[in-house]
């Protein structure tokens, strides 16, 4: 194949995955900004979402519910999960240090891992197609149809979430609560409601992202490594930028795609190493990320 065409194809297919990464990272940022939790268990929320979706959608051999119903049911379960996590755990830790909530999320990681392992096992499960499958020819470039669909849905969702935080009353109130909790309270913003909404949104995005990734690669525990991707994306984007996540996702996924195509033969898992090295470089050169507003504390 023509090397230029190959390069273009790698970039485009990477960008499609990047959109999904960006969407997933948004959920992490929402929890970090609005619930003030560095949720290391976030990848596990996506895993739970993907397995719940599999339960509703069914395997390719034995589909269960029609896809739209299954997706709605999954997202409803995700909202429930988010609310339960907030109610049982993080509401009780609202006045604790960030280290304490971080440790609590480590514990949550173990609990969710145990839950998924005991309910669904450790095997990779194939899911019935959520999007139409098949190759799509554009000139010399071949793209997978499901990637394109997943990308479109991801971008749409990202747009809706950005709109929510910029235009709606509740979204603006939540941003106010992030800026200054005490001042927001005096203006009648309910910090509890804000935290509940943040956890629901975070869990829904995680589940949606989990489904999108699962349509591409199947449902398995390996999805939990998503948190590494998420961390890379949010650090590239800047910890507090929702919109920057999409850009960060694009940079990461395109880079990973290129690196794994050109150097994957010499070093297995080079795409993971690439994302980690990217994290280190960003942290050293520009710790607030490409789109972050608040400079992080330097010693």
């Amino acid at each position: 194949m023509d090397p230029v065409i190959t390069l273009i194809q790698l970039i485009i297919s990477g960008a499609l995955v990047g959109g999904i990464y960006g969407l997933i990272a948004m959920g992490f940022v929402v929890a970090y900004r609005n619930a003030r939790v560095f949720n290391i268990a976030y990848g596990q929320l996506a895993v739970v979402g993907a397995f719940v979706a599999w339960t509703f959608v069914g395997s390719p051999a034995a589909p269960r519910l029609p896809v739209p119903f299954a997706v709605v049911a999954t997202l409803a379960v995700a909202v429930l999960l988010g609310l339960v996590v907030e109610w049982l755990l993080f509401r009780r830790m609202i006045d604790r240090s960030q280290f304490a909530t971080f440790v609590a999320s480590l514990g949550l990681l173990g609990v969710l891992q145990g839950l998924v392992m005991s309910v669904w096992g450790t095997k990779t499960l194939a899911m019935a197609p959520v999007f139409p499958k098949g190759p799509l020819h554009l000139g010399g470039i071949v793209l997978a149809r499901e990637y394109l669909w997943a990308f479109l849905v991801a971008v749409l969702l990202a747009f809706v979430i950005t709109l929510f935080f910029r235009r709606t009353r509740l979204g603006l109130a939540m941003r106010a609560a992030y800026d200054n909790q005490a001042a927001a309270r005096t203006l009648g913003v309910s910090v509890r409601l804000s935290s509940q909404v943040a956890w629901s949104i975070s869990a829904v995005i995680a589940a949606a992202g989990g489904i999108l990734i699962a349509t591409v690669g199947g449902v398995s525990m390996a999805l939990s490594e998503l948190v590494l991707v998420v961390l890379a994306v949010v650090l590239i984007a800047g910890m507090d930028s929702v919109a920057g996540c999409i850009a960060g996702g694009l940079v990461l996924a395109v880079g990973q795609n290129l690196v794994s195509y050109y150097a994957g033969a010499y070093f297995t898992g080079i795409e993971s190493v690439f994302s980690m090295v990217l994290i280190l470089i960003v942290l050293l050169v520009r710790p607030s990320g490409m789109f972050g507003t608040k400079p992080i504390e330097r010693v």
């Binding site: 755990l89 173990g110 891992q113 839950l115 998924v116």
Partner: peptide, 24 residues
């Protein structure tokens, strides 16, 4: 066997959560 491994994860996680929440 699978369930016993899962149980270890869940119990460890729960232990961490309970300690950080109630006996930090």
């Amino acid at each position: 066997i699978n369930f016993s491994a899962a149980l270890t994860f869940a119990v460890y996680g729960l232990a961490i959560i309970l300690f950080i929440a109630f006996r930090p």
